[in-house]
Every structure is written in structure tokens, then in C-alpha cells.
Design a protein around this nucleic acid. Sequence first.
DNA 1: CAGGATCCAGTAGGATACTG
DNA 2: CAGTATCCTACTGGATCCTG
Lengths: 166, 166
Amino acid sequence: MPTRTAAEKRADAKADYDAFLANCPSRQLLGRISDKWVALILAALGDDGPLVGFEGAGFERAGSERANGERADVACAGEPRQMRYSELSRRLAGVSQKMLTQTLRSLERDGLVTRTVTPTVPVTVTYELTDLGLSLQQVMRGIKVWAEAHMDEVFINRENYDTHAI
Amino acid sequence: MPTRTAAEKRADAKADYDAFLANCPSRQLLGRISDKWVALILAALGDDGPLVGFEGAGFERAGSERANGERADVACAGEPRQMRYSELSRRLAGVSQKMLTQTLRSLERDGLVTRTVTPTVPVTVTYELTDLGLSLQQVMRGIKVWAEAHMDEVFINRENYDTHAI
DNA sequence: CAGGATCCAGTAGGATACTG
DNA sequence: CAGTATCCTACTGGATCCTG
């Protein structure tokens, strides 16, 4: 059958992408997902627990208890990771609507999140990770965690660097 | 003892960093490391093998054979992940000297890589991951791999998105 | 509520030229 | 070789106003 879409042809071409190459699409994709807001959005939509052993059995979720009130807006009840625009906006403190919308659109286009519009009185829009998005979230999560975990160490290194080498 | 550096005071403050907060230093750090060039530099300095079981025993390294000459500049012999400036420059195809130098400085300052100058005739500078850098590389590697692995899927999603929703 | 549309400042980042 | 310095453009991203 001669009617094959470009997508199909690309799919079974199985090109071995290499982000080290300047013109490889994966380089561009890498640039797209290596983004602060992407990391935070994915983390927000996926922080219903560590789910380390995802493909297997028991995935325990991080106890959603944050004793000190302040922000208990995590909203991870039941079958989680499904947030409204305004929830995301509040969770990612300091994000501008432009960046939030723009990043969400990009994620939606790439098939990492789904956007669901519910025609209530004031319209309700929810975002949710797709399976693909979840797979990326698994690795992106690590970056955020790493940053939070090694902040102190980095601080000390910076101080050394700045004072020692003037 | 009253003589405690700011670094020390910060260290045992053990603040629970949260990148979701706008003013948290970890947010800034997250922004810094969520970078295409950071990902590629770390990957280049660390691609001496999968080293999944790093802390444990046998780490097999990816066979450093690239039959077709062209670029055999991977230079992962012996005790690997130690690259010269020019090697990195060649490996990260398309990177400008400015971005390469700038990113390397930043990584050095944060204690992720070490910079070693050997006063040969034309000076020789090598970069190497620190333990801290290696720990980050372990997670950053996943992003590059993910991008390369899911490129096709993303392509299809984009096509659907673009055609379906005009 | 969930954005779309603009405007505009800041900076990321490439190109080029020069140096120890 | 491994940068530094400078210039300049383009895009990032915030602020603001507007709409269904």
C-alpha cells in the first residue's frame, strides 16, 4: 500500500538519533525539554508519589502530609495527577501566564500532557500526564530532586570558587 | 566558637529547599542545570559506559569502537571521562566557544567539573566530572536518552496536533 | 476561569577578532 | 590550544490589557 504518512515512514526508519549532532532532531527536543518550567510542570502533574517501581508491583506514594499548613494545595487525592490551570499556576509560584500556557501548549503538542476542557459555567480546563509524559516525568523528577538535595553542596562550592580564585 | 562561615551556617540550617517556590535557591539551580548544554557536557564527560551499578561492582563500558573513522575523538581509554576543551568542542557539534566556555565555568563554579591546566607547550586543559557532577550526570543522562528514544513518538504526536487542530 | 494579544526589557547566544 | 573580548541579533519571558 503506497499510502503511508510521513509519520509512518519516519517511524520505521528507526533513525538512530544522537543529540550530540547539531542537526539531529533529538538535539532540538533535548533543548525543548531541558527547561525549568517543563521540569516543574511535569513534577507538579506527577508528584503523586515516587513510583520507583512503576512497571512492576507496589508503588508506595509519598505521604501527602505537610503538617505545616501554608500550602496544602498539592491536590493529590484518588487517581491523581490531574490539575487545573489555576492549580498549576499557584503551584509553580512565580510563573507567568504566558510561560505556563506556552509550555503547556508545547507539552500538549508533543503528546506529553492532555488538555481537557469541561464546559462548566466558568470553563474548567485540566491537564494530565500522558503515558509518554509520565515516562519523561520519571527522569525529570530526578533533576528537581537533585537540585533540592545538593543545593547546600553547590553553595559551598560556589563560595570556595568565588573567594579562592578572586 | 563564633567563627563560622556563612557556608557552614547554611549547611546545617538544612533548609528544605522546594523548587516550586519562586525564591528558593533550588529554583535558580534548577534553571541553571535545566540546560541543553549542561546535559550534553555532562553526557560527554560521563559516557564511558552505562555504569548503572556504579556504587557496586562490574561496570562494563560501551565499546569505544567506531569503525567509520571520521570522529573517533571519544577518547575513552583507561580511566575515562576526562576531556580536553577541543574534544568537547568537537563532540558537542555546533556549540559556540562562548557557550562551551561559559557553561564549563558555571559547572566548575558549582563544583560539578574540575578544570586542570597542564602547562605543556600549547597549554592543555582537561575537564573531568567531580563526584557531585557524576551524581547529576546519572540523572541528566536519562533526559538525553529519553529525547533520543522518544523522538519518533513525539514527531507523530506533533503531526497529529498540527493537522488535527489546524 | 483560562487564556489570547501586545509591548517591551533583558539576556541568551552566535559570529568574529584577538591573545598568552 | 584554549580561551577572552566585543558586537549584535533574536528570542525569552515578564507585565499589562483584553475576552469568551
